[in-house]
């Protein structure tokens, strides 16, 4: 059974591409086959985060316009043989993504892969609408910050009205992935808590990815964070999130807490 997931947020810079790469790698490392698809035409970056930027020959638009076959455009990850990338076009206009073309490509990917992860561009325009269009499930990426939460709320509204599933009268599963979470700020009362954000958005929690240098280091070297720092907290959060997506019993999402004081700082790093 194949599942199409959109990684979306409305707001830019919250971690959609990082998340797509990390979840894609985490799912692929279980042995499932995974296609990650960049919908950000003109501003592609998933190739860069995956370290495949120099291997792009054909792209999504080339496939839609019939200039390349889908298998020609797919790039196989060098580390995980089950992980494949369909890059966006860097030069074309976003209008080159047609409804029919996207439907056909997603349909073909669905028949070939266990998981299809669609990395949405920011905003609510055409690219974002098409990225969510065929999804069975949405991972809504948000920071615990007012503008991000507001945009996530807007995106949830669109997921419930503009997706194929919604138009058929079916529901689309929506999960919140809280990223760049800073436990210290939350405990000082200067960042909305997990409970605050969950209460406002009222969708189930898939995971909490703490703010961490691991994420920047991973993108610096073009490696998903689950592979670059597999024992770090962001990687563990993504690996758990992937297991939840696979339906494994992982237990409740652990809310990061910051231990106070010198002792905490010296010995509490794992818990922090």
């Amino acid at each position: 059974m194949s599942e199409v997931i959109v990684v979306t947020s409305g707001k830019g810079g919250v971690g959609k591409t990082t998340t797509t790469a990390a979840l894609g790698a985490a799912l692929a490392s279980t042995g499932d086959t995974v296609a990650v698809v960049d919908f950000d035409v003109g501003l592609r970056n998933l190739d860069l985060v995956l370290g495949a930027e120099r291997r792009v020959v054909f792209d999504f638009i080339n496939v839609i316009q019939g200039h390349a076959k889908l298998p020609q455009a797919m790039i196989r990850d060098k580390r995980l043989e089950n992980l494949w990338l369909l890059p966006a076009s860097q030069t074309r206009d976003k209008d080159a993504l047609t409804d029919e073309g996207v439907a056909q490509v997603i349909g073909e990917l669905r028949s070939r892969f266990d998981w299809v992860l669609c990395d949405s561009p920011a905003g609510i325009e055409r690219g974002a609408a098409l990225a969510m269009r065929h999804a069975d499930l949405a991972v809504v990426v948000s920071n615990a910050e007012v503008s991000s939460v507001r945009d996530s709320d807007r995106i949830i509204g669109l997921l419930d009205s503009k997706t194929e599933r919604a138009e058929r009268g079916e529901t689309i599963d929506k999960y919140l992935l809280l990223t760049r979470y800073d436990a210290a700020r939350a405990s000082r009362g200067d960042m909305m808590s997990v409970e605050d954000v969950l209460e406002i958005l009222s969708i189930p929690l898939l995971g909490i990815v703490p703010e961490s240098e691991d994420v920047l280091r991973a993108s610096n070297i073009g490696t998903p964070v689950t592979l670059a720092s597999p024992t770090g907290r962001p990687a563990r959060a993504y690996l758990d999130a992937a297991r939840r997506l696979r339906g494994e019993a992982v237990g409740e999402v652990e809310i990061p807490v910051e231990k106070q004081g010198l002792i905490g700082r010296l010995f509490g790093r794992r818990a922090a």
Binding site: V149, R150, D153, G189, M192, I200
Partner: peptide, 20 residues
């Protein structure tokens, strides 16, 4: 000090109730 997180939460709740 007044906690800013609760201000953020309250403002969002009011705003989103309206926007939804």
């Amino acid at each position: 000090r007044k906690k800013t997180a609760s201000a953020a939460r309250d403002r969002l709740q009011i705003l989103l109730a309206h926007e939804r």
